[in-house]
Design a protein around this nucleic acid. Sequence first.
DNA 1: AAGATACTCCCCCAAATTCGGTATTTCATT
DNA 2: AATGAAATACCGAATTTGGGGGAGTATCTT
Lengths: 214, 214
Amino acid sequence: MERDIQICVFEDNKHLRESLQLLINNTDGFQCTGAFPNCKNVLTDLKEVDCDLCLMDIEMPGISGIEATQLIKKEFPEIHVLIQTVFSDDDSIFRAICAGASGYILKSSSPVQYIEALTDAQSGGAPMSPSIARKVLQIFKSHNEHIPKKDYDLTDKEKLVLTELTAGKSYKMIASDLSISSETVKTHIKNIYVKLHVHSSTEAVAKAIQERII
Amino acid sequence: MERDIQICVFEDNKHLRESLQLLINNTDGFQCTGAFPNCKNVLTDLKEVDCDLCLMDIEMPGISGIEATQLIKKEFPEIHVLIQTVFSDDDSIFRAICAGASGYILKSSSPVQYIEALTDAQSGGAPMSPSIARKVLQIFKSHNEHIPKKDYDLTDKEKLVLTELTAGKSYKMIASDLSISSETVKTHIKNIYVKLHVHSSTEAVAKAIQERII
DNA sequence: AAGATACTCCCCCAAATTCGGTATTTCATT
DNA sequence: AATGAAATACCGAATTTGGGGGAGTATCTT
C-alpha cells in the first residue's frame, strides 16, 4: 500500500493557498501536510512536518521562492520543489533551475494540470509547459554557445563532409556514410580546403568548430 | 484560413516512417511533405520541399540526426526540429539541444502525444516528456555550476602539443615551434591518442575543442 | 637504490592523406 | 542549345600519419 505523497504549499495569496490545499487533500494519493503564507521560517517549518514535495510560489514577501528553494535543496536535497508562478521571464526560470527546482508551472494551469505536475515531479520528472521548456532550451543554448559567424560558400555536400570530418571520421568512413566514393570525398575536401584557406584536416576541423561554420 | 503545417520525417525504419507519414497526413492541419530514410542529402532534400518542421530520428546510418539538426538549423534556422528517439541518455539530449532541437520525444509516445508535440513545437513550445525535462534541468544545472573539465591526465607537453595540433599545425611545425624533434612530437601525439581514445588528429582536435580539454 | 614518470629521439613499415591533374553526369539557368 | 555549377569519380606521386617497437636522460618518489 502506497503512502500518500505529502505536500507543503508556500503561497502568500490566502485564497489560492487554501484552494490548493483543498485540491491536494481531495485528490487520492495526495495529502497537504502544510500550507504557509511565506518562507520566513521555511527550514523550521519543514522540520516539523513530513514533506515529499513543496509547491512554491516565487513572489512572496520576505524570502522569495527562489531563495527558499536554494535553502530547501541545501538542507533537504530529497524534497522536490515545484515552482508555480504567474511570470515566465528568462531570468526567473534560470534562477529557479539553478536553485534546484524540479519543475516550473504557471498559475494559470488547471487543477488537473496541477495534479499531473505534482505526480510527475514526485516520480522524478520535471514538469513544465512547452513554452517554459522552450525558454529553458533557449537559455541553455545561449549559455553554451557564442555567436554564429560567417559562411564560406560551402556547398551542401561540402558542409556534410565537413560535419563528418569534424566528428573525427576518416575519408573512408565519410565515403561509406554518404554512400559515395572516397575519391569524391577527397575532391570535396580539396575544395573545402580551398574555400576555408586551410591545408590540412586538423586546420579545417579547428576552423569549422571555432567559427561554427557547421 | 490557416495553411497546413508541413512536416518532413527523417527515420530509417521503413515501417515507422510510413506510419508517421500516415498519421501526419490523416491529421487535420498537418501535411507530410517528405519522408526520408537517412540524412545523406538533408540540405538538398529540404530545399526541394516546403517544410516547417522536421521530425528527426537520432539513430540513422550515415549522418546522425544530431549532425543533421546542426546542419538544418544553420541553413534553415526557421525550421523546427523535433527529435524522436528510443534513447534518453544525457549526452544525446545535451547534444540535441546544442544542435538546436526544438523538442525531444520518445518513440514510445502515442499518436496523440506525437501530434501534440508537433503542435507545440510549431507554436513555439518545446515539447518534452517530464523525464527528459528533468534531465535537461540536471544538465543545465551541472553546466552552470562548474564545468567539469576532464583532462584525461595529459602531461604539460602533451597539452602543448594538442594545443598546437588544434591550431592546425603539422608535426613539423609543432616540432619547430616547441624546438623538439618531430619524432618527439609523434611520440607525444601517439600518447595523446591513447589517452583520449582516438585514432586520428581530426578526432583528437574535435574532442579537445568540444570538451575544452585545452 | 629502485621505480615511476616525463621528455626526448630513432627505426621501420603500412596506411592514409595531400596535391596536381582530368573527366563524366546531372541539373538549373540563360 | 549552351553554359556553368555541383557532384561524381579516377590516376599517380609525393608526403604525412599511425602503430609497432626500442632507448637514453632527468627528475621525483619511495
